[in-house]
Structure formats: structure tokens, C-alpha cells
Simulated scan of single mutants.
Amino acid sequence: MSATQNVRAMTPPKVAERKGGVPLVCLTAYTTPVARLVDPHCDVVLVGDSVGMVLHGLPSTLGVTLEMMIMHGQAVRRGLEQSLMIIDMPFGSYEESPEQAFRNAARVMAETGCAAVKLEGGETIAETIRFLAARGVPVMGHVGLTPQAVNTFGGYRVQGRGSDAERIVSDALAVSEAGAFAVVLEKVPEALARRITGEVAIPTIGIGASAACDGQILVVDDMLGLFGDFRPKFVKRYTELGEAAAAAVAVYAREVKERRFPAAEHVFADAPKPADADASNSGQAA
């Protein structure tokens, strides 16, 4: 990494300084190639426990393990030069006690090179956030709809409507006062997101929480349109890679069946040509 890239690299304090400034750009990533793709454009890259649903086909985030998060965190780290990498602490890895949370967060940071972790929960987790922050573990909070509590909520429902708004405000304030450097607001009404953003001292990162927040985050596979049947209201699809990929696979299958692939330009001759020799030395194979 060059000296220039070191200067540009995001840190938790730099994220905190963006409160009320230029909105923070955040996306998830779970692999090295995607990390390289998003890194030039993002302030924060989150290795989210959504990896369980997106890449592993799990029905929720609850089955994600610490080992899974570490593996994907290591992959993403290899693809980043400037974005701040944050890793989700999975369900069951931090709720038992602050000591458990520190032990597992320290392991995640040591084995992945991440600069911070993200914990779900508000007032109930504030003591743990304070414990971690005091021991050198930067924490991003997450309130509103917290997917690890999906069974408690009875589904992925909007949180903070009506009198329930005060609960979300209290959670966000507790996270901020405990020492988190930023907080994700997920699936809350716009007016509530605006109020919380105005009341907490740290940046708010919205996902289904309106442009009133200090930044935005989406699951990268959602905004790229890789899932044809998954269209939550809060996601804008910036392209339809799923449709393009399906069409490409269909063409490939047809050409194989019709013996049109591989064509002459994809086949090696008995006497190697210079281009063949170069390809053979590249080390590329299926």
C-alpha cells in the first residue's frame, strides 16, 4: 500500500468526523473480487452476517458462525486498500457478557485485520459497547430492525412506528453514549430516522431509513440485482446482473449442446502458437 493510499484509508475516527457532512457510502462485501470492485467508491465495507443468506443459502443470519465471519473477513481484507472494513459479530458471539464479546471481537480483529466490529442492539448491549471501546475495539452499533432478533420481532417488520419510536431513540442514544463511532438505523420511518440523526452525536447509517441519515448501506448483491425474486422496498436496483448472468448461462448451454463452443479460437493446435504458449504459462485453469 502506498503512502497516498495510507492517507486516504478510512478509520473509525474519520467516519465519526463525517457526522453532518458528506454522506458516508457503505456496502457489504463477502469476497475478494467484490471487495476490489467496491473499494474505490466506498467509505465503509461491511462484512455482514447477511453472508449466511446471500452466499450460504441460510434462511436467516442466525446460523452464521464466528468462523464463517473470519473466513469472509480475510477474503475481503485482501481486496481493500482504502475503505474501512467492519465485520458483523454473529448471533451468540457477544450477548453472554462483555468479556465474551471482547474475546471474540479480539479474535476477529486479529485474524482478519478489520478495524472495527458491528453489534446489534441498543440499551441491552450498551454496557458491552462501552467495555469494548475502552479496550481498543471500535464498535459500530445497529438499532431498529436487528435481523438477529427476527424471531422476537416476528419477522422483518418496520420498527419504531407510533409509541415504539421512543424505544428506538433510547437505543440509538444508548449506543452513542456508550462509545460507538457510528450506528446503523434499519427499517425505521423517515421522520424517526431524521429525529435520531439530529439527536445522536455519531453518524447514522441508513438502510430503509431515508436520506436523512448521515450515510447509506445496502447489501451489494441486492443493489446489483443478483436476486430476481428479492425486492424489498428500501432497495434500489442499480442494474440487473442476475438477469444478465442467467441470459449468458443460457447462451453458453445452448452453444455447448449445439457444439458451437468451444470454437476454433478456443482450441489448441498440435503445434503451439505464441499465444498458446503465453496462455499455458499463465497458470489459469478451470
Rank of each mutant, 00 (worst) to 15 (best):
A134V: 06
G206H: 03
R167V: 03
A133I: 05
S176V: 06
V25S: 08
A182Q: 06
M223T: 15
T28Y: 00
V249K: 01
A29Q: 07
L224T: 15
P98W: 05
A285L: 08
V76N: 05
L27E: 12
R231A: 14
M53W: 14
I70Q: 01
A271I: 05
N6W: 14
S282V: 00
F131M: 14
Y156E: 05
A264R: 15
A253I: 06
P138F: 03
V117C: 07
Q5Y: 03
M1V: 15
D164G: 02
V251E: 11
S83T: 01
G92T: 01
F227Q: 09
G122E: 00
N6D: 10
E120K: 00
G52H: 09
I168V: 14
A180I: 02
R8P: 00
A279C: 06
P33S: 02
N151L: 12
A209I: 10
G121A: 07
F131Q: 14
L84R: 06
P262F: 13
V188N: 06
S170M: 04
S176T: 08
S60I: 13
A133N: 07
D221W: 13
Q148V: 11
K14P: 15
A75M: 00
D222K: 12
Q100E: 07
V44D: 05
I217T: 08
A172F: 02
V200M: 03
R231G: 05
M85N: 07
F131E: 14
A212I: 06
G155A: 08
P98Q: 09
K187W: 13
G206T: 12
H72C: 09
G228A: 12
I196C: 00
V158K: 13
A115Q: 06
G79N: 06
G154L: 04
